[in-house]
Design a binder for these strands. Structure first.
Lengths: 157, 157
DNA sequence: TATTGTTATACTCTATAACTATA
DNA sequence: TATAGTTATAGAGTATAACAATA
């Protein structure tokens, strides 16, 4: 590779690594006000995004977790009344998980908070720059998402 | 805000949230081959970046951790011979932490692996696009890094 | 037999509080 | 008194293995 590329790779690597660590930290900090962990938030988001009443197995898959881990996360969300479990009428082994109204409300609140944060960045940019950012980040996201199998790590995600 | 901005904010928010979750997952997965956690890797990186022989307090600060947490992380790294502790000759309360040769070797290996990953993305882009990506991500990183206080979360970073 | 979900177990990360040694 | 670091404790997330119920 040419020198320019090599230098860009090095710079981008630094930035992306910092971004990976800092954005998680920032998210965890923001969620703290709601007494939610990143894993719990990730589960709520998946429930909001997917069709209502999905199984534990599906939810675990959507969150890149094994089902035993999901059991604990859903236990804690259910204790707080943010989600509910009910038995699947078609398969008596399965539990169908749903967002409650309370769960939906909290996740919408967080969405507003996050939107405000992003807005503060994007107003600094021109429409062209915003489009470019979206396009470049999409390319990057695809490359990190698709090449591995689950599960992603033995510990400390 | 105008419609275009609003739509861009919404799209970027989705992408950045996914990026936050997926990049951490990807990193954890990559580190698994080395039997390292993200927190351990973060500590090794800080030791590589900072002057040799920093105190536990400084290391904890660099990793955005409280010192009690850092004690456990350094314990496990030291057991594996990746770092060493020695008493500060100028302050008998303080422990100075250093990377060992073994620790340095492992972090360089990981660096190569990460570089290869980024390269696969960047070769798809023109030099101008790469510069733009670097510039835009730097702006974003600054906005998420600087406005909070430590510590960043009660649990699950 | 295979799948769904839970429980049991073990480890890491995380924080707060209490403590020792030193400054 | 204040600071550096550890230990004690508690809770969350993570994985694997074993298990009961159901398909």
């Amino acid at each position: 590779m040419d020198d320019r590329l090599e230098r860009d790779v090095s710079n981008l690597q630094q930035i992306l690594m910092q971004l990976s660590l800092a954005s998680r930290r920032r998210l965890a900090h923001d969620l703290d006000s709601y007494n939610l962990t990143v894993a719990q938030y990730s589960a709520l988001r998946a429930l909001q995004r997917l069709p209502d009443g999905i199984s534990m197995t599906e939810l675990a898959g959507a969150c890149h977790q094994v089902s035993a881990t999901m059991t604990g996360i859903v236990d804690r969300l259910a204790e707080r009344g943010l989600v509910t479990r009910k038995q699947d009428p078609n398969d008596r082994r399965a539990q169908l998980v749903s967002l409650t109204q309370k769960g939906l409300t909290i996740i919408i609140e967080i969405d507003v908070q996050q939107t405000n944060r992003i807005s503060r960045v994007l107003v600094q940019l021109t429409p062209t720059e915003r489009q470019e950012m979206l396009r470049l980040l999409t390319i990057y996201l695809e490359t990190i998402q698709d090449d591995p199998k689950q599960p992603f790590g033995t510990n400390s995600k």
